[in-house]
């Protein structure tokens, strides 16, 4: 008897609509095409969100003030991947970073490039490596590289 059966399928994400797309993500993608990052700031508590949010999650009020965010930041945590999403071993260990970009209070995850796994540490300074051909999607940011 077959132990586990896999069914292939596709999940059309365009059928989902979110307010955050209009407020935060689409405006962020537009600026990313110019190698810039725009989030927003809560006028009450000062928390800066990237991508921008349509309400402050702490104060629960509508927020509109844009905030420019640096493409440099600090590693808050990291992991070194030894297996892919299906559990198969990788040829080379893969560095993944959780980074707080300067001027924001939220984190962004992304691959680390140009660094040896043993050199990665919390508090390490990194910057975004932008794609040469930017099209306005999240892969316009290629990776994080040492500052």
């Amino acid at each position: 008897m077959e132990e586990t059966r896999q069914v292939q399928g596709t999940w059309d994400l365009s059928t989902f609509k979110f307010r955050i797309e209009g407020m935060g993500i689409n405006s962020m993608l537009k600026e990313m095409k110019e190698a810039k990052l725009i989030g927003n700031r809560c006028h009450q508590c000062g928390t800066v969100y990237l991508p921008a949010n349509f309400y402050c999650r702490k104060c629960h009020i509508a927020i509109h003030e844009p905030a420019e965010i640096s493409d440099h930041g600090e590693v808050m945590s990291y992991t070194i991947g030894y297996a892919d999403v299906r559990g198969n071993p990788l040829d080379e260990p893969r560095v993944s970073l959780m980074v707080k970009l300067d001027g924001s209070d939220t984190w962004i995850m992304g691959a680390g490039e140009g660094m040896k796994p043993e050199d990665v540490h919390i508090g390490m300074r990194v910057k975004i490596k932008w794609a040469e051909q930017r099209v306005g999607n999240l892969q316009d940011m290629e990776s994080f590289i040492p500052e």
């Binding site: 299906r86 995850m109 992304g110 999240l138 892969q139 316009d140 990776s143």
Partner: peptide, 19 residues
């Protein structure tokens, strides 16, 4: 995800990696 996260974790903003 709709805006282009690479779910294999290799590149791009939001790439988590590691299964």
């Amino acid at each position: 995800l709709a805006a282009g996260i690479d779910v294999t974790g290799q590149k791009g903003m939001g790439a988590i990696g590691g299964g």
